[in-house]
Design a protein around this nucleic acid. Structure first.
Length: 1059
RNA sequence: GGGCCCGUAGCUCAGCCAGGUGGAGCACCCGGCUGAUAACCGGGGGGUCGGGGGUUCAAAUCCCCCCGGGCCCA
């Protein structure tokens, strides 16, 4: 006959988790879980690939994976066949940089010169794969059930090939193009830098105001401000704001043009006090004004540029926060300038700077100078030309190379782009069809789509997917969509698709027949992850649309602009659809002060450390209970708190399983059906609560409010089960015989805990598994190998009784008042009292107290509960009344003492009349006297024998008058408790018997003796002696002195041995 | 500089969408309880609901501005 097994010992996460880990491994539980739903309804999910630059995941990454795990476990429990392949984003500069550091490479060209690309690539791959392996280890440690044997890796040939397909597809639509772009450039490393390779550092730079002479005007100048004098040789135009007001100002013999809003600041900075505003006019009026470059004689390039020199309107780039309101435009050195140049139809983009940051011949006098060093020379030349209005310096944030901290330059280069701007309307439409959780994620994305830029695909690096474009000397171009096409074009399949092997593949130009070589660029890593939605599964030609469109993804809110956005672009490019249906956004884990976690700040917490210190389930519980889309603050204290709550959950199961197994409880023969006739009100309450809980947790999981689901589960086990239900059923469980009453409690507890455990298995899978194996598995016929092979519990609507749940809340409230009233009276809960009176005029409270009288009496340890309307509170009140002579004296003069005495002798009627009617009339010495509120000071108090506590809905009074019988019972319970403490100290098992002697003074002995049988029963005493003398000199296991009701008593116990 | 999010007790957060007497847990102090006890129960101190303005009979809640923090971008 199956019966409930036993959960034992204190909750030790590491002990539990190590065991469970081994169990899952040995029994191949993940595989079994997958097989269970194979072929069922699909849940098409994909893991956003983390970047394997480190070996141990950040705690925020742990959250990311655990969140996915909880959701996928839930979906599997709901019967879905879940696609759960994880992935890694393996290419890119961060890995290249680490390898460069390892190999001692300082400049990019050393890669080819010293190491060779082949070796370099091998190193990059090695580093990526090692980190992939390590990260996978930690994700498994966290209990994340994903297909760790088959992750998708962006470095694999099949993956790269899948990417080629999309580029070909884009090219076929005319969306692949090549054009000049302004990029960040590190002059020391001779390379472009992406945004994420830029840091901002405090730097001191020149801050100069330069006068550009207006063509055809005498001593009239456009005044501009710049902190990068080295960009002046490439000046092409000047930008102004059409809607701002500008002024002509006379300074000395010069006329300067600048924005009115900046005038005061500029003059103050230049320390010019004498200036006269000649004219105000709108910025619009400046449009088209031509000027000459002050350095045109020194810089040959300026000959080419002079035809562009005029003022153009650029409201989006001209601010009134700094500068002069006239902005020097050098499209070769700035993105905004570049944009304006394009808009203005300027086709010559000057960028006279080489790879190492030196001026080229075009810059004339400055040729060969390192640009930042040329600043001083340029300033002197400006001064000599009479063009320098003011020179100062500025401390500002300036972008620097994250690797060598060199200030970066902006420089023009040719880059390959995807013209996604042409797809904007479709992107907007598709983004709107997706369900975003929370909704504001869509706002973010839409904002970005409004400012949509073309996608710069190419990078001049090594470790990346190769751009599949080949060109011949005639300028003919092919885009290769697959390896098959490569071979069809006369190429030989290389060893692998990375550089340098792919660069050796030479094709034959289909137009002119000449050899074609590959454009040496690699792809932006965002392109790699963008195609994961299909590339993780294979080449798109072999996939159906249902394979490709994801049901659900979840990542951090930084990915709105990252992965969510790039997936959307790739989805629309490749399939004219958003590639996902629902997107959940999660937050960032900050340190306990709300700052970002950084290794350099010393506030970094790794997953390894968190697991080691706190355990996996506590960590999981903590991360999962945080509001999904907000940024939680990490502190060890919170994880510790989560651990403590799990300990309470664990103890709940220890309690249940201990008694059930002791009694050989078999749920299959004494289940809820059998218990139906014996259910007490608290049982019906518990059944209602657990089903309400299942409903609530399910609803929240369906809308991906994981934190609400987790909080509800946590609250339920701690408060409803541990703190309340178990407390209520405890006495029933202590009964030795298998009464229907006890079995009903078992059935309910067993059932409720099982449903809870099933739900908890999605969130704290280790704890749930261990409890299942220890307690539930032995009790079930056809038990499954693992708890993770069960379905999500259903809701038994017929058990839900909202009214009962509300009533129980009221009972808890009343009970709190009773406890407070007892405390005021110094009556411990063990001491029975005659009665408790609930005074209320709230029908709901009265109804609850009335209908749950028995339960309330048990809780309150009262012989009876009475419910009365609140007016009758008066019956247990009395009033002390003091006359107020200051009020009486002036009115009644000599009568005052008599009135005073009257009041003191008749406090009750005086108080009642004044309180109820506002006055009390009396006749003294023939004179009618009316006492009102001001004449007396009334102090109400409760009569002796009651301790009363007030609540918003009424009052609760505990009758504190104890009879001898009640005192005797209290004493007996006191003694029972002492003996229990001693039993526990003795370390004997729950079902052992003892022998007991209680030695105590005569006056107590009689009282205690009345409850001799009760004491013996509760303490499992086979023999019990109540005596006033010391017992004979037999051997006792424990002897202890106690003080009860102010008297010394001595208790002797020993383990009972059968003769 | 822009977009989005967050700001409520010492700490972490609920309450806000659908306005109606500000809550929980933790921490602290006092008292109690104890056969799941590193637990639990009762009481206490603790709040300009980030600041200011507006709408309203009524604002933590709705609207506007500002400040601080986070993410993304410039």
């Amino acid at each position: 006959m199956p019966s409930v097994g036993r959960v034992e010992g204190q909750y030790d996460p590491h002990r539990v988790e190590e065991w469970v880990k081994g169990f899952w491994e040995k029994k191949h539980v993940y595989k079994l879980v997958k097989e269970k739903n194979r072929g069922g309804k699909r849940f098409n999910f994909i893991d956003g690939p983390p970047y394997p630059s480190g070996a141990v995941p950040h705690i925020g990454t742990a959250w990311n994976k655990v969140l996915k795990d909880a959701i996928l476990r839930y979906k599997r429990m709901r019967g879905y066949d879940v696609f759960d392949r994880p992935g890694y984003d393996c290419h890119g500069l961060p890995i290249e940089v680490k390898v460069e550091q390892k190999l001692g490479i300082r400049v990019k060209r050393e890669i080819e010169e010293k190491i060779g690309v082949e070796k370099f690539i091998e190193e990059c791959r090695g580093l990526a794969l090692r980190n992939v392996e390590s990260l996978t280890h930690w994700f498994k440690e966290l209990g994340v059930f994903m297909d760790w044997e088959n992750p998708y890796l962006t470095l694999r040939d099949e993956y790269i090939e899948a990417g080629w397909w999309l580029i070909k597809k884009a090219a076929d639509q005319g969306l692949l193009d090549r054009e000049e772009r302004v990029v960040y450039w590190c002059p020391r490393c001779s390379t472009t830098l992406a945004e994420y390779e830029i840091e901002h550092a405090d730097l001191i730079d020149p801050s100069i105001y330069v006068k550009f002479p207006v063509r055809g005007r005498e001593r009239e100048y456009l005044l501009i401000w710049t902190t990068t004098p080295w960009t002046l040789p490439a000046n092409t135009f000047i930008m102004a704001h059409p809607e701002e007001t500008y002024v002509r100002v006379r300074v000395g013999g010069d006329t300067l043009i600048l924005a009115k809003a900046r005038l005061k600041n500029v003059m103050e900075e230049a320390d010019v006090k004498d200036y006269v505003v000649l004219e105000e006019f709108p910025g619009e009026a400046l449009a088209g004004i031509e000027y000459d470059h002050p350095l045109r004689d020194l810089v040959p390039l300026q000959e080419k540029l002079s035809r562009y020199h005029r003022v153009v309107m650029a409201p989006e780039f001209v601010t009134m926060h700094e500068g002069t309101g006239l902005v020097h435009g050098a499209p070769g050195h700035g993105r905004e300038d570049f944009e304006v140049a394009r808009r203005e139809g300027i086709d010559y983009i000057a960028s006279p700077v080489d790879d190492e940051g030196r001026f080229t011949e075009e810059a004339g006098k400055y040729a060969g100078m390192y640009v930042r060093k040329a600043n001083d020379v340029i300033i002197e030349d400006l001064r000599a030309a009479g063009a320098l209005f003011h020179e100062g310096s500025i401390l500002h944030k300036y972008p620097v190379c994250w690797r060598c901290k060199t200030p970066v330059l902006m420089r023009t280069t040719k880059q390959w782009i995807l013209r996604v701007t042409k797809l904007r309307d479709k992107l907007v439409e598709e983004a709107g069809k997706v369900e975003w959780i929370p909704g504001w994620a869509l706002d973010r994305l839409m904002h970005m789509l409004e400012n949509l830029q073309d996608w710069v695909l190419s990078r001049q690096r090594y470790w990346g997917s190769p751009l599949p474009v080949w060109e011949c000397p005639e300028g003919h171009r092919v885009v290769v969509g697959s390896l098959r096409e490569l071979e069809e074009l006369g190429g030989e399949r290389p060893k692998e698709l990375h550089k340098p092997w792919i660069d050796r593949v030479v094709l034959k130009c289909p137009v002119c027949g000449r050899p074609m070589r590959r454009v040496p660029d690699v792809l932006d890593v965002w392109f790699d992850s963008a195609i994961a939605f299909y590339a993780a599964k294979g080449h798109p030609e072999k996939l159906s649309i249902e394979d490709v469109i994801l049901d659900f993804i979840v990542e951090g809110h930084d990915q709105t602009r990252g992965w969510f956005f790039s997936l959307l672009r790739a989805g629309v490019l490749g399939f004219s659809r958003a590639p996902y249906r629902k997107v959940l956004v999660h937050g960032f884990v900050l340190d306990e002060h709300g700052r970002e976690m950084h290794k350099s700040l010393g506030n970094y917490v790794g997953t390894d450390e968190a697991i080691e210190k706190m355990g996996r389930d506590p960590l999981r519980l903590w991360v999962l209970q945080n509001t999904v889309w907000e940024d939680p603050r990490f502190s060890w204290r919170w994880v510790e708190e989560a651990r403590r709550d799990l300990a309470i959950a664990w103890n709940t199961f220890v309690f249940a399983s201990t008694y059930m197994s002791l009694d050989g409880y078999d749920p299959s023969s004494h289940g809820l059906g059998e218990a139906a006739g014996s259910l007490r009100i608290e049982d019906r309450w518990m059944l209602s609560r657990i089903n309400s809980l299942v409903k609530k947790v399910t609803e929240n999981m369906e809308r991906y409010h994981v934190h609400e689901a987790v909080r509800a589960l946590r609250r339920f086990i701690v408060e409803d089960v541990s703190h309340w239900y178990i407390r209520l059923i405890r006495p029933r469980v202590w009964v030795e015989e298998n009464t229907g009453d006890k079995l009903a409690a078992y059935a309910v507890l067993y059932h409720a805990l099982w449903k809870w455990l099933l739900m908890a298995s999605a969130f704290t899978p280790f704890l749930a598994e261990k409890i299942y194996q220890d307690m539930y598995r032995p009790s079930l016929r056809d038990a499954r190998e693992s708890i993770h092979l069960y379905e999500w519990p259903g809701v038994d609507e017929e058990y839900i009784d909202r009214e009962l749940e509300e009533k129980m809340d009221t009972i808890r409230d009343i009970y709190e008042a009773v406890a407070a009233a007892r405390m005021k009276a110094g009556l411990k809960l063990r001491q029975p009292v005659r009665r408790v009176v609930v005074f209320t005029s709230d029908p709901a409270v009265a109804e609850a107290a009335e209908s749950m009288k028995d339960l309330l009496a048990r809780l309150a340890n009262a012989r009876s509960i009475e419910v009365r309307p609140v007016e009758r509170l008066e019956e247990i009140m009395e009033y002390s009344v003091e006359p107020v002579p200051r009020s009486l004296g002036p009115r009644y003069r000599k009568l005052t003492p008599l009135i005073t005495r009257y009041i003191e002798e008749n406090p009750e009627p005086v108080a009642r009349d004044i309180l109820s009617r506002g006055e009390h009339r009396l006749v003294l010495q023939g004179r009618e006297i009316t006492l009102t509120r001001g004449d007396v000071k009334i102090t109400p108090r409760y009569i002796e024998g009651y301790s009363v506590v007030e609540k918003p809905w009424g009052s609760v009074a505990v009758d504190t008058r104890l009879t001898e019988e009640e005192i005797a019972e209290g004493a007996a319970r006191d003694i029972v408790r002492r003996i229990q403490v001693m039993r526990k100290e003795l370390g004997i098992s729950l079902d052992d018997y003892i022998d007991t002697v209680i030695a105590l003074p005569e006056k107590l002995a009689e009282l205690v003796a009345r409850h001799r049988d009760y004491i013996a029963g509760e303490t499992r005493s086979k023999t019990i002696e109540i005596t006033t003398a010391e017992p004979s000199g037999e051997a006792w296991d424990i002897v202890r002195e106690w003080e009860i009701m102010g008297e010394k008593i001595t208790i002797y116990i020993r383990k009972h041995r059968e003769e």
